[in-house]
Every structure is written in structure tokens, then in C-alpha cells.
Design a protein around this nucleic acid. Sequence first.
DNA 1: CGGGTTTGTCCGGGGGGTGGACAAACCGCA
DNA 2: TGCGGTTTGTCCACCCCCCGGACAAACCCG
Lengths: 332, 332
Amino acid sequence: MSRSELVARTGLTRSAIGALIGELARVGLVVERRAISDGSPGRPSPVASVVADQNVAIAVEVLVDCVGVAAIGLGGTVLYSTRLDRPRGRVSVDETIHDIVAGVTQVKGKLSPSCRILGVGVGVVGLVRRPDNSVPIAPNLGWHDVAFGDQLRLALGGTDVVALANDADVAALAEVRRGAAVGVDDVVCIWGEVGVGGGLVSRGEMITGAAGFAGEVGHMPVNPDGRLCQCGSIGCWETEIGEGALLRLTGRPNPSMVVLGGLFGRAHPFIAGQLNDEIARRALHSSMANLRVVPSRLGMDAVLMGAAELAFEAVLSDPLATLREVEARRTG
Amino acid sequence: MSRSELVARTGLTRSAIGALIGELARVGLVVERRAISDGSPGRPSPVASVVADQNVAIAVEVLVDCVGVAAIGLGGTVLYSTRLDRPRGRVSVDETIHDIVAGVTQVKGKLSPSCRILGVGVGVVGLVRRPDNSVPIAPNLGWHDVAFGDQLRLALGGTDVVALANDADVAALAEVRRGAAVGVDDVVCIWGEVGVGGGLVSRGEMITGAAGFAGEVGHMPVNPDGRLCQCGSIGCWETEIGEGALLRLTGRPNPSMVVLGGLFGRAHPFIAGQLNDEIARRALHSSMANLRVVPSRLGMDAVLMGAAELAFEAVLSDPLATLREVEARRTG
DNA sequence: CGGGTTTGTCCGGGGGGTGGACAAACCGCA
DNA sequence: TGCGGTTTGTCCACCCCCCGGACAAACCCG
């Protein structure tokens, strides 16, 4: 993006943009290439771009049947990724951490030595309490009250900051930042693979609720006469999924876009027509009939991309301070 | 609150607090009283307090069976209020606006001439689209696509800024700011009178969703085999209320506190025991069993208080600019 | 090669905060 | 009444970040 474009988008002055870009370039987050003349009159504006291959996040996804690890450059370019399928049953905390450490070691080996690691982001199939990076419960993994973030951080050597979140939450984040919902403020993501997960984004920010449980649509009760769910409740969506509960959810008055991922994303072409009919019928009002239901654009990569986004959050909000901290942690 | 207390709470320096308080005092939002010595050593700190009776909001609530109007001072003190009961059927837009104008005229007459009106806040039983202050649909009033905010503003003379929101949303706001949920970040309010309304607050801010429909729990589908609701959906909570749906809702993994108002608030003493048992049984995890369900503290006043809070929002976020604008609108 | 246009850079200025020095207002004690 | 000890308000120099104008640089076109 050229400097003049930045001026137009941010509303800041040329002076301010110049100073900011200069500072970011000084610490190696950004490079400026000489402007290429586009034929229009006036002095051409130099193009600033992110140094993606020197500023990366380690992204981790912990699903039921696989563990994925990737190095993702600032801006969302996947530099290298690996995936370890694992037989059902190999889901204990220790085994999972072991597999992650192996994947991270492999991925780090592929990176150039000059490359900076800005953080480790993890998306996990389970409920996550953000303040302490712990997993109170992950039904599909059989985990209860695990200090997963801390354990992983130590297992990785303790030099990198680890940020943990629910897999559907980070997938939603990825779709909003770089996927099907770019520019949309209020989004619900429905992620269905083994279980049913959901992520909420309101006004561009992730909503997790007090205990990190918001958006856990899989355990929203939809049928009072339904079957007992493993979460202890009755008639959860996750257990009643055969009954067309997806349609009921989209009938709820919240988002301006619903992104479907996983199984639902792949099924989208076959159910889109019926879905839209149902939305039109159930919408409380015509302004809700504009609700768009779209398939995920990032597909399988969404969770890893979102995990990276999670790790980048600190750099984006305060680049200089975060880089200082990263450097401090690296040297000891 | 004393200046030294402000320094401790905000983390700002004494200089900054002094300058800010001085400026607010200069424009008449705040007065400083000489400090009263409390016996402890050291120079006593002057106490700053809000000039509530000279800086008021006109708060309006539009319910099914009544229209309420109040003058509420900055900080939440009710200076004067009036309520107009109305027979069922007198709910048209024109009649409602007529009743409000009458109420506002009466309330304004009771205020001293020196008193500043900072804005008009309205809580209405219906869905509200925030950007344009319109009401897409209000089933219990029979309204469809009404530019209610604009109509009311013009009917009131056009000199005051009018802010509109859903009644349950503003009630939630009031409970968080000055009621049962002070200091709690993530709150769901359930308001049941004629219909069932809900307000969401996450991280201290009102969540309305893209179309202003978030938190409309009354129309959340809870029974796939239920009755047809007037909103066009099937098995809405509002229509299935007899089936214990409240318990199901509190089983949903979102807030750290649920505030019950209206009918539910009055019923709270009788159902508290059963409610807590059910929460403990349905909670996904023990951290959710800490969920507190409490009755509204503000009761009947919650909607009016919240409407005032809505009107005060601009002054609180940028006092000087808002006061300049208020003055500009008043003089022409 | 010279005007028109768009842009980067330099520089003075202002708003809003920090932080230290100093004075003011209280306490307790002699 | 006077004197330290303590807490606080006030003044002032300073810094950071941004604005906005003046100027130069780099492009177009004729």
C-alpha cells in the first residue's frame, strides 16, 4: 500500500504517516520500495509493505484428529506448515504437547536464522479462559481444567509468548481479518467438524464472554425434549444437529453475516437455496433478510490463520513495545 | 469523590486531574466543595461532585401500557418523573408521540430555567436500528418501519438530540451502570412484562448487533415443535414462556451475571432456589456455576434510568464538545 | 524545458499528558 | 504557639504525537 493511500485511509497527515512508516521500517517490520509510476501526474508515492518472512508467528491448531503447526508471516502469508494426523485416542494433554513441540521444532528449523518469532498462537477444540490461557473443559479431547497455555509455553522453552483461544473463535477472527467476512463488523462463524463450534465477532472484535464461553453454539439448547448431551445439558445443538438446527440459529437476530466452515462450509453449495428461503421466512424483519450466509474462504487454513492473528495482536496494537519485549525474552 | 481518589482510580497525575476537574468546573458540569478533614494527616483533598440539577437528560420509556417521561440529572438522580397509563389500543405512532410531547412539556416546566438539557434518551418496546434511530419492527405496538427517532425529535422542536434504543437494552445499561450489575463486565438482562426482552453487555459496552437485534432473546427459538409466534418464527421463547425456558437460557454459556427484571424480577424470590439448582446442573463447567442470577435493583425505574444513560453517553465521552453542540443547538 | 500536479520532508506549534519543585493545609507533639 | 511529618494542590519545564503550512522533489503533459 502506498503512503498516499495510507494518508487517505487513516485520515492522518503526510507528516504523521512518514514518521510512523519510518519508525516501523527502522525496526524491520516494514520496507519501502521505490514508487512505480502509474502514469498519473504528480510525484509517485513509495509503496510500503510488511516484511512477512522476517516477522512470523508460530500458529498451532489442536483438533480432535490432528495437530497442525505453521509459520505464518505478518500479514497472513503461510511460510511453512505441517500437520500431524493422529489416531483417535491420542488426545491426552501430554501427547498433544509432545506433538506440538515436535511440529514447532520442525517448522522453526525451516525458518532463516534472522527471522523473528513474534509469538505462538494456539486454536484449540475446547473452551478457553483467556485471562490465564487455561482450558476449563474440552469435551472432544476429554480435558478438564488444564493449564494448557502455561504448560505449552514451558514445553517450548519459555521464550515465546503463547496466546490461546477456542478454535472456532480464531477461525472467526481469521475470516473477518482475511477471509469471507473482510470489512463486515458483526459476524457469527459456525464451524462443524467433529463437534459444532461457533465464534462471535461484534464491531470487529472477538467476543468471548466472561468465562470464554460465548459463541459456544454447539451447546445452545434447541430442543427441550432432546437427547442428553455429554456437556450435561439436554437437547444441545451439537446432539440435535440432524434436525435442521442450523436454520434455527441463522434465524436468531444477531449478525450481518454468517460464515460456515468445516463440514458446513463444504455442504454450503448443496444447502444454500433452502437456507436462504428459510432465512427469508424466519427473519424478524426485512433488514434481517439481507443476512448473508457464506462459506468459509480460508477453509482448512482458517484456524491456523486465526491462531497467527491471535499471536500478532500484541505487535499490531503496540509494535515497538512488543518488539522490545520479544527481543528481551530472546536474549534472556 | 475527592481529587486524590480520582488520582488513585485513574492513574493520572495530580496535575492532570487538577486540569481536567478545573475545565469541567469551568463549564458547570462539576463543582468542588472545600475538603472536610477526615482526621488523617496531610492536606485534605477537595471533593468534586457532579452538578446534577443543572445538567439533565429527558428520559422517555415507551412501553405497551404506559409512556413514562422523567428529568434525570447527570449521575442518575431522578429530578422529576411522570407516567401516562394508556388503554390497550392507544399505541399508534402518532398517539405515542403526542403523549411523549405532553409528558416532556410537563417535565420541562418543572425544571429551573437555568437548567441545561443534554439530550433526550428513549427506551422503546421494539427493535431499534441505532444508526438512524428507526424502529424496524415493534410487534407489541404494531409498528413497522417507523422513523421514530426523527419524528420525535421534530415533534419536540428539533433542538434536542434524541437517542433511541430497545427498552431491555437500556435497562441492561442502567443495571450495569447504577444497578445490580455495577462493576460486572459481561451481563445479560432478561426483562419480562408483556413480551420478553433481553439486553447484552459485554466488557461494559452494549452489544446490539448489526441490525440492533442482538439480545432479542424473546424471539430465540427454543422449541422446534412449538407454536407459531407473531414474529413469523416457530417456538420462540416469548411464546413458549410457560415451559421453563428461562432455565434453558441461563444454561447458555455467556454472561457472568444475569439480571432479571419486570415479572421475572418480582418472581425471583420464589424461583431462586430452583434456578440455582438448575444452573449448577446445566453449567458446562464449574466456572459457570459461579454465574449469579440476581433480581433487578432499579426495578420500574431501570428503563428510564437507562434512557437517561443513553442520552448522557455523548457528554461522558466528550464533555466539552458536546456542551458546545448543545449550546449551539439551543441558540439556533 | 517549463507549468501543473501530487507527494515527501522539514519545521513551528499546540494539546494533553508526565514528573519534579514548591507551597498549602492538615495531624500530632512539645 | 511553634515545629516536624504527611498529604495534597499548583506551577512549570518537558515530552510525545499529531497538525498544518512552506518548500522541494518527482512525475505528467505540451
